[in-house]
Nucleic acid binder design. Structure first.
Lengths: 137, 137
DNA sequence: CTCAGTGCAAACCCTTTGCACAGGA
DNA sequence: TCCTGTGCAAAGGGTTTGCACTGAG
């Protein structure tokens, strides 16, 4: 994708096939993959890609604010190209992680917080439970 | 503490000095320590205690619902003897983790959720930001 | 041409596991 | 006594690092 290359270039970064591949992969999914999943997905199209590069690239994007790291209690981190704070649901049966597009939660959290002696930069809401598919089984 | 021993006994568990020590340590702190911190704290009073036992004990308590595992994005998990779902603040400067006793947040989250095809069992809200002490520096 | 990015393997950290011994019930 | 819990050391999984090579600018 051309846009990704341009985005990186604008930020003054070197544009490499690996970086483009990782970022595009994240843009094209809502599955909140971890490094391993990203690596496996890109393996076929980018045969020389290494897992270490995936980690380095993700870390790099994170510093730049292009990518968000998400920790839902698993052993490995998941990644999201949507960097705006937003709530997630995590199914404890199948493990799927979904976005919740309910701004109200974030707004309420923000309103209740000013009384605290705490300067909130980002609020992370995770709902643990059972997803629709797993309920039906 | 006698209560801890009794609590364990009621649940039909063996009462060992290690289990009592770990549970009491968690009851007596609001610092949300990780396994390493618990181990270091107990080292002086329980010289034979091993880190592996701390892990095993914490895992055991978790299964029993006596302790809650908390993941705030660090490499290691933190633990809390308060098992009721409640929000936390995490300072990105000093790393301290504090409890937030604002039920309203949880209630709002619950109210907004029924429309979803998702059966929520526990909502976890983490506010990332800067604590009072770190703001003052 | 230069220097940052990549790929590999080794190192690293946190956590779990296997196994013999110790100590609660 | 019996069996579970403990402690040690080794293994395990995810992530990071060191270093020589590659390739983008």
């Amino acid at each position: 994708m051309k846009e990704t290359a341009q985005l990186l270039r604008e930020k003054g970064l070197k544009v490499t096939p690996q970086r483009i591949a990782v970022y595009n992969m994240l843009l094209g999914t809502t599955a909140h993959p971890n490094a391993e999943m990203i690596y496996k997905t890109l393996e076929s199209t980018n045969p020389t890609m290494s897992l270490a590069t995936v980690y380095k690239t993700l870390d790099f994007f994170k510093q730049l604010g292009l990518v968000q790291e998400l920790n839902v209690g698993e052993s490995s981190s998941r990644y999201d190209a949507v960097v705006r704070c937003h709530p997630h649901t995590v199914c404890r049966i199948c493990g799927r992680v979904d976005d919740l597009h309910i701004d109200a939660l974030t707004e309420v959290a923000r309103k209740l917080v000013p009384d605290l002696d705490f300067d909130v930069e980002c609020e992370q809401l995770i709902l643990y439970g059972i997803c629709k598919e797993c309920q039906e089984k």
